[in-house]
Amino acid sequence: MAVQHSSRASKTMNRRTSVTVESLAHKYPVPNACRIGNLIVSGAIHGVDPATHTMPKDLTAQCAYVFANMKTIVEAAGGSTKDIIKMTVYLRDRDNREPLNAEWVRMFPDPETRPARHSQPLLVEGPSLVQCDFMAVIGEPD
């Protein structure tokens, strides 16, 4: 998996760094995430299989890929899932949260350290049943 950190200006002139994971790159000229200092903010993360670039038809598989892709992106930006402080989830059917909650508990098993989460209706065309974005704050190195 190739990770591309792109910046047109030198780091002394531009403190914002775009983060693009090659296998998850958008078809538009938009990075997967952006980092300034210790703050990481993602764009839309889809439930696509990064190996085949296909979207599964069922919500359970899409949720699994959304969380896996989120993990890949936050790690490419220099963080980990422990650094995620807020996640917004967009669901086509907001009454069907069981697959989402299963992945949520799998990624964030400790109820005392889970990030904030908010859900919104997913209002896009196409096969996507779930999407997310996140904010993360990376702590000081040990």
Score class of each variant (00 low, 15 high):
residue 6 S to W: 12
residue 7 S to Q: 14
residue 8 R to K: 13
residue 13 M to Q: 10
residue 14 N to K: 05
residue 15 R to P: 01
residue 16 R to H: 14
residue 17 T to K: 10
residue 18 S to W: 12
residue 20 T to S: 02
residue 21 V to T: 10
residue 24 L to H: 07
residue 25 A to T: 10
residue 25 A to P: 00
residue 27 K to D: 09
residue 30 V to C: 02
residue 30 V to K: 14
residue 31 P to N: 06
residue 33 A to I: 00
residue 34 C to K: 15
residue 35 R to H: 09
residue 36 I to Y: 03
residue 37 G to F: 01
residue 38 N to V: 02
residue 38 N to M: 01
residue 38 N to W: 02
residue 43 G to S: 07
residue 44 A to V: 00
residue 48 V to R: 12
residue 53 H to I: 04
residue 54 T to D: 14
residue 55 M to S: 13
residue 57 K to Y: 11
residue 57 K to C: 09
residue 60 T to D: 13
residue 60 T to L: 12
residue 64 A to K: 15
residue 64 A to W: 13
residue 66 V to P: 04
residue 75 E to G: 01
residue 75 E to Y: 04
residue 78 G to S: 04
residue 80 S to I: 03
residue 81 T to S: 06
residue 86 K to T: 03
residue 87 M to K: 03
residue 88 T to Q: 11
residue 88 T to Y: 02
residue 89 V to I: 15
residue 90 Y to I: 02
residue 91 L to W: 01
residue 91 L to N: 04
residue 94 R to T: 15
residue 95 D to R: 08
residue 96 N to S: 13
residue 97 R to E: 05
residue 98 E to T: 01
residue 99 P to T: 11
residue 101 N to W: 06
residue 106 R to V: 05
residue 106 R to I: 07
residue 109 P to Q: 08
residue 109 P to W: 02
residue 113 T to Q: 04
residue 116 A to I: 09
residue 117 R to F: 03
residue 118 H to T: 15
residue 118 H to Q: 15
residue 125 E to F: 08
residue 126 G to H: 02
residue 127 P to H: 05
residue 128 S to D: 15
residue 129 L to K: 03
residue 134 F to I: 13
residue 135 M to S: 08
residue 135 M to D: 04
residue 136 A to E: 00
residue 137 V to H: 05
residue 138 I to P: 02
residue 138 I to N: 03
residue 139 G to N: 09
residue 141 P to G: 03
residue 141 P to H: 04
residue 142 D to M: 10
